[in-house]
C-alpha cells in the first residue's frame, strides 16, 4: 500500500509561493488560515534556502496523540485527516505539531478558536467523496479523482514533491546522486542536507 508523503527539495525551491496560492485556490481556504506556507532559512545570507511546509502527514502524528476527542485518523494511504464534527477547537494539536500545521480561523469572536483546519493532502474528509459537505468543510478531494495535491502538481520547479513515498524518494535520490550532494548521498542523516558554508551564521539581529 502506497504511503502519501510530501518532500521539498530545497535546491529547487525558489520561494515563488505558487504552492500556497494553489492550495488556497483549490480548497477555498478562508482568510487567516494558511494550510501551506514557504519558509526561508538564513534569509539574506549566502546559501539561503526556502522550503514549503504544511502538514507532513506523520506516521506517528503528535496531533493525533494529544487530541482529547480523538478526531484525527489515518487513511489507508497514511494521510492524517480529522473530523470537524468532533473537533472542539481546544488547540492542543496546534501546540503539539512541530510544523505549525493546525490552523484556526481568525474571524470569530476573541478567544473563540472554532474548528481546526489543516492540509488534507487534498484528500477531503470523512464526508462522502467530492460531496458539497466535504468541500465546504475540508476542501477538494483530488485523491479520490485520481490526482495529487494541487500544491505539488502546481510547483513550477518540481521542488515540492507529493505522492507515493517510495516513488518521490526515488525521484529525490536520483536528483541527489546527479548533483553529488544533498541528504549526504545517500542516507537520511539529515532531512535537508548540510550547510554549504558551515562557517556562515544567520544574522543575530544585533544592531551595528
Amino acid at each position: 500500500m502506497a504511503r502519501m508523503k510530501f518532500l521539498c527539495d530545497d535546491e529547487r525551491c525558489i520561494a515563488c509561493n505558487g504552492c500556497v496560492t494553489a492550495c488556497k485556490q483549490e480548497n477555498e481556504v478562508p482568510w487567516g488560515v494558511n494550510r501551506r506556507r514557504v519558509v526561508t532559512l538564513n534569509e539574506g545570507v549566502r546559501g539561503e534556502r526556502s522550503i514549503s511546509v504544511a502538514c507532513m502527514h506523520c506516521s506517528d502524528a503528535p496531533c493525533m496523540a494529544v487530541c482529547p476527542v480523538d478526531c484525527f485518523y489515518h487513511t489507508e494511504e497514511g494521510v492524517v485527516l480529522h473530523d470537524k464534527d468532533m473537533c472542539i477547537g481546544c488547540g492542543y494539536c496546534f501546540y503539539a505539531c512541530p510544523f505549525g500545521a493546525p490552523q484556526f480561523p481568525q474571524a470569530g469572536a476573541f478567544g473563540m478558536r472554532g474548528k481546526m483546519d489543516k492540509c488534507t493532502f487534498c484528500a477531503g474528509g470523512p464526508e462522502k467523496d467530492n460531496s458539497k459537505e466535504e468541500f465546504a468543510k475540508y476542501g477538494s478531494n483530488r485523491l479520490a479523482q485520481g490526482k495529487l495535491p494541487a500544491c505539488a502538481e502546481m510547483c513550477s520547479t518540481k521542488a515540492l514533491l507529493g505522492g507515493d513515498g517510495d516513488v518521490i524518494a526515488d525521484i529525490f535520490r536520483n536528483r541527489a546522486i546527479k548533483r553529488g550532494k544533498g541528504s549526504e548521498v545517500w542516507g537520511w542523516g539529515t532531512a535537508y542536507g548540510k550547510p554549504d558554508h558551515p562557517q556562515q551564521q544567520a544574522p543575530t539581529g544585533a544592531k551595528s
Partner: peptide, 20 residues
C-alpha cells in the same frame, strides 16, 4: 471515513514523469 483514496491513474503517472 473510508474513501476512494490513492489510485495509480494516468494523471499521477504523468506527474511522476514530469517530476523526474
Amino acid at each position: 471515513r473510508r474513501t476512494a483514496g490513492y489510485q495509480d491513474s494516468a494523471h499521477i503517472r504523468n506527474y511522476y514523469r514530469t517530476a523526474k
